[in-house]
Amino acid sequence: MSNPELKLQIKRLMVENLMLQITAEEIADGIPMFGPGGLGLDSVDALQLVVALDKSFGLKISDAEAAKGILQNVNTIAAAIEQKGQAAG
């Protein structure tokens, strides 16, 4: 799977699971998930995202520190999924 396709899948998952009022295409790869100037997600959104990423991609985010690194933006999530794939392969 090419990287842009993976990123689009992640964005669709976010829109669907977090009931975002924007389309997947409107989410920039590097836009921050949290904080001002970003998507404005909160801790409950993060919780849902962790569960959805595990269910859809088998990405296990085991602790808050790992979540902080992975859930920065779509790029970091895609990187984590690809890294997991490489480790498994």
Binding site: N17, Q48, D54
Partner: peptide, 8 residues
């Protein structure tokens, strides 16, 4: 909770 969250 992980199951219920996934089920919404």
């Amino acid at each position: 909770l992980p199951t219920m969250i996934a089920q919404r």
